[in-house]
Structure formats: structure tokens, C-alpha cells
């Protein structure tokens, strides 16, 4: 059976190696687009295993990044390739550098954004698909872009997504709404760690307790059945 499975995987490599879930596609968008400005300060490369990435893919992804590694004997800063146990972190070395590169604004960290953003994922997707060209005569503050989802109709983030901007490995058509929804799925996964395991464990625990409650109900009834006199 196992050999059959491996053989089928080799016969149809698209199933084995290529993105297929929204979260996996969202990771592709993150790697190619978002991660040039936004950080994932609390998610490690190894955590991506939960999305179905193989160990070798994770190692290869981590190894692409050089991270600070203290000082060498001459006092010069050293770097090393990241390990899977390192956090994905920020593309910038400091918050100050991040601000300098982004007109003074700090691109928010992605780790818990799904949770801390008012309106959650739906709001983030809404912002991503609401860039249009401003109506004539509309004056925008310098360094900001027209976005109909924002209360004041402008946002500091340049439009990050464009149709056909990336190439999905599973062949999905990379339209802006498609990429926005995939990024949303990825952020949702990052913002609620171990949600699937949580629900699976929860179902087991609840059924166990429900059955135990049934037994205890019968036990209690049988024990108290001896007390027939009316209660005071």
C-alpha cells in the first residue's frame, strides 16, 4: 500500500511537491511578495511543517536567509544561514531600518495579525482587493495610496498584489482576489497556532467527558436511589 502511494506520488509529482491548499499558496505569496517588507517574528521555519512542507523544503527555505550571529574575533558582525528552528523574522535588521525603507511607517508583523487586526482576516482581504485608481481631483497625502476599504480612503502600503505577479506551483491563476484569499488563509493559520490540533483534541476530550458524564449520572442516580424519604 505504501509502495503504491509512493509510486503514485512519483507518477503525479503535482500532488506531492506542489502547493494545493490555500495556506500553502498563501505561503508562496508571502515568500514572493509580503516578506520583502513584513516580518513573521514568532513563526519559525520548522512551524511551516504544519502546512505540509517537507523537511528538505523547510531547510532549503531557511538556508536562503542569512541572520546575524554575534561578532567575530575582530569585532565585526557575523552572519550564518538560518536553521529551521530560527524564526522567519523580519527582512530588516532593525525597526528603524524598516521605517526608513517605508516612508516612516512600520509594516506590521504577521505573526498575530489575523487576531489583532480589527475585523480579522476578512478586513485584511478587503484591504488587499480594494486598491483602485483615485477619482479625478482626489488629492492624496504624500506616500499614500488610494484604497476604498480604508476610512480615509488612503493607505501607506503600496498596492502589493497585481494579476499574474507570481507563478503558483500548482498552476492556480494568480489573480489579485485569489492571492488575497490565499494570503488570508496563511495569516489565519499563523495567527491561530495549532488550531486543527486544538479542534481534534477538543472533540476527543468533549466526547470522553460526555460519556463519563452519562456514566456518572447513572451512578449518582443509583447511589441516591436508597434515599427515598422526602427532602426537608
Amino acid at each position: 500500500m505504501r509502495r503504491l502511494f509512493i509510486a503514485s506520488m512519483l507518477a503525479f509529482p503535482a500532488f506531492a511537491a506542489h502547493a494545493s491548499t490555500p495556506e500553502q499558496r498563501g505561503l508562496e505569496v508571502f515568500r514572493q511578495v509580503c516578506s520583502s517588507c513584513h516580518s513573521l517574528n514568532h513563526v519559525t521555519y520548522a512551524d511551516l511543517g504544519e502546512l505540509g512542507l517537507s523537511v528538505s523544503d523547510i531547510k532549503a527555505y531557511a538556508a536562503q536567509h542569512e541572520i546575524p550571529d554575534g561578532l567575530d574575533d575582530d569585532g565585526d558582525p557575523k552572519t550564518r544561514p538560518a536553521h529551521p528552528s530560527d524564526v522567519i523574522g523580519s527582512p530588516y535588521l532593525t525597526a528603524g531600518m524598516a521605517r526608513m525603507a517605508n516612508h516612516g511607517g512600520l509594516p506590521p508583523d504577521f505573526s498575530r495579525l489575523a487576531m489583532t487586526q480589527k475585523g480579522g482576516i476578512r478586513r485584511i482581504i478587503d484591504i488587499l482587493v480594494s486598491y483602485t485608481s483615485p477619482p479625478e481631483g482626489k488629492k492624496l497625502p504624500p506616500g499614500s495610496y488610494y484604497n476604498t476599504a480604508m476610512p480615509h480612503l488612503h493607505i501607506a502600503m503600496p498596492p502589493p498584489l497585481h494579476d499574474g505577479q507570481i507563478k503558483y506551483t500548482d498552476g492556480t491563476n494568480p489573480t489579485v482576489p485569489q492571492m488575497a484569499h490565499d494570503v488570508g488563509a496563511f495569516l489565519s493559520w499563523a495567527g491561530h497556532p495549532h488550531l486543527h490540533t486544538r479542534h481534534r483534541t477538543g472533540l476527543f476530550v468533549l466526547s470522553y467527558l460526555a460519556i463519563l458524564s452519562g456514566f456518572l449520572f447513572v451512578l449518582k442516580r443509583r447511589v441516591w436511589a436508597k434515599q427515598t424519604k422526602k427532602l426537608p
Binding site: G202, V205, L206, L219, V223, W224
Partner: peptide, 26 residues
Amino acid sequence: PYYTTKDGLGLCLFLLVYAALIFFAP
């Protein structure tokens, strides 16, 4: 066995609420 069984039943229901909370509405 009277209050061990009665507390036990109540406790089990209490844990049900507790578990529903932490697993499905964290």
C-alpha cells in the same frame, strides 16, 4: 458515596464547559 457521586457528576459537567471553552472558543 453520596457527595462523591454528586460532586463527580457536577464536576464532569463543569469540565465539559471548561473544555468547550479552551478547545473551541479560546
